[in-house]
């Protein structure tokens, strides 16, 4: 529950201070990047808070390097 609130507050702050002013000022180029990032990260964050397990990025990089350099 705590994490839902934290994520919610974080997004509310950023949406009100960044996204809404950008939409008002019609900064379309920036919005092409910002809106998908906001949506995708929001979905990922909700999934993380719900307990969905994602592979750790460091483990993925570590396995990739181990297989590339043939490190046991």
């Amino acid at each position: 529950m705590d994490n839902y609130l934290i994520i919610g507050a974080f997004y509310v702050v950023l949406i009100f201070t960044d996204l809404i002013p950008a939409i008002r000022e019609k900064k379309t180029k920036g919005l092409f990047f910002s809106i998908p990032v906001y949506l995708i990260t929001l979905i990922v964050n909700i999934m993380i808070v719900m307990g969905v397990q994602f592979p750790a990025i460091t483990t993925v990089i570590q396995h990739a390097i181990q297989s590339m350099l043939k490190i046991p």
């Binding site: 974080f10 997004y11 180029k29 910002s34 906001y38 990922v44 964050n45 750790a56 460091t58």
Partner: peptide, 20 residues
């Protein structure tokens, strides 16, 4: 500055996926 908040969101999301 138009991208700072988007990058900040990406950072906080990736941070949770880094390691256990």
């Amino acid at each position: 500055k138009a991208f700072t908040a988007s990058c900040a969101i990406l950072i906080i999301t990736l941070m949770q996926l880094l390691y256990q």
